[in-house]
Amino acid sequence: MRILLVEDDPEQLEPLHTALSHAGHIVDGVERGDDAQWLIGEKDYDLLILDWVIPGPSGLSLCQRYRQMGKTAPVLMLTAKDMTSNKVTGLDAGADDYLIKPVDVPELLARVRALGRRSPLWQGDVLSIADLTLNVTTMTVERRQVMVDLSGREFQLLEYFLRHPQQVLTRNQIEQALWEWRTEPESNAVTTLIRRLRNRLKGLDADDWIETVYGVGYRCKPPEMG
């Protein structure tokens, strides 16, 4: 999932960012409310994780504006405000879930998964194409009783291909989808990542499923469908 994580304390932002990335999400982490406001206008996110007290517009008003924009992606409030009245205010402002700091990382990840399931695009914990299955919870890919672990990036790439089967995806599209805001992938980053994914898929005898369309980009095309 593409997640916007807003947390003003860099000491707390960094480990949460890492944990969510390792769980296979693409995370844009920002410390200020105004940056977050600009990003929710520019990009589409599958989930917003907002701290309440941040410089610039507060997490609460960000949540309200987000809903006013007509966006429906789930919002998780993450704050030290632990009074019941605070929770009520937060949830009434349009948040879907409310977590109190100090946050338990496994719990945060579980809640993020739970909120992901609520999305209308959710297709279960697995994505499949032909006889190849990708488990989004365990980040494993399986074919004919053979299972292979994927790294975060590899998983994100495969997930992106499986969500857009048969489509030719340009390098630029892949960069936009996989790389976080403000990070500049190296020029051959996509090529390297494609090679790494093909190497993984070799264990499943499916390395030729990722097809290079010369001069345009790549396409996921199982042989049976061709």
Partner: peptide, 19 residues
């Protein structure tokens, strides 16, 4: 609040480290 902030960061770091 000031005590909880570093505590939260410590907990997150410890848990991410364990993972």
């Amino acid at each position: 609040h000031e005590l909880r902030t570093p505590l939260a960061a410590m907990l997150s770091n410890a848990q991410v480290g364990l993972m």
